[in-house]
Design a protein around this nucleic acid. Structure first.
Length: 210
DNA sequence: CAGTCGCA
DNA sequence: TTGC
């Protein structure tokens, strides 16, 4: 299977737009910007309400950050680890997300935050819904950087069998409308090497959360 | 409270 | 994959 024949499948997945290589030219700059955010709000592995540690490490930028702990999932205006506001959303992040959304049929998208996930080999994201945001009219814009991954794209019910979509550095995914609350996840990351990140995958997820 | 971004 |  080559990458060339993978993406046309995406067009058959209603509500999901795949933009292969959309951010490839900005890859290095985006990674540097992630470092800048992480210098002020370090990556950390949060606990689920059930008390288990997530395998992906996370941080946030923008007006609020997605957090999980014993109290549940929610958006918080302050980083619980520092008590300080999350780092500002970099202009380059916002511009990228707006361009990707506009190209995918969401011209008015103005993200107010970005969740940044960091995956090492073996890390995963179980099938879940993005439902903690207040604005479900706004889409989700997801940017992959570094190590490749298999994106799991389910449906409105968790029992819907997910499609498996390979994602590579620079790929952008946008979902919204009827698919806004569809279940999705990331299969366990396979070991590998990326020229800029080594054995690490980063994912930027832009939302209108507040 | 229900579900569960995890787990068996 | 499904139930907790």
């Amino acid at each position: 299977m080559t990458t060339g024949e993978l993406f046309p499948e995406t067009l058959a997945l209603p509500g999901l737009t795949s933009l292969p290589g959309f951010a490839l030219a900005e890859e290095q700059a985006l990674l540097q910007t992630i470092d800048t955010v992480a210098a002020r709000a370090p990556f950390r592995r949060m606990k689920t309400p059930g008390g288990k540690e997530m395998s992906a490490a996370m941080t946030n930028c923008g007006a609020a950050g997605w957090v999980s702990d014993a109290r549940g999932y929610r958006y918080a205006r302050l980083d619980p680890q520092s008590g300080q506001p999350w780092p500002k959303m970099p202009d380059s992040f916002r511009t990228l997300a707006q361009r990707a959304a506009a190209q995918s049929g969401f011209p008015g998208f103005v993200p107010d935050m970005a969740l940044i996930n960091r995956y090492e080999p073996g890390a995963r994201m179980a099938l879940h819904q993005d439902i903690d945001e207040r604005n479900f009219a706004a889409p989700i814009v997801s940017v992959s950087l570094g190590l490749s991954a298999i994106f799991l794209w389910g449906g409105p019910k968790r029992t819907d069998k997910p499609a498996r979509l390979p994602l590579h550095s620079g790929d952008v995914l946008v979902w919204g409308g009827t698919a806004r609350k569809y279940y999705h996840g990331i299969a366990p990351i396979k070991t590998g090497e990326h020229k800029l990140t080594g054995a690490t995958r980063f994912n930027l997820t832009f939302r209108h959360a507040l």
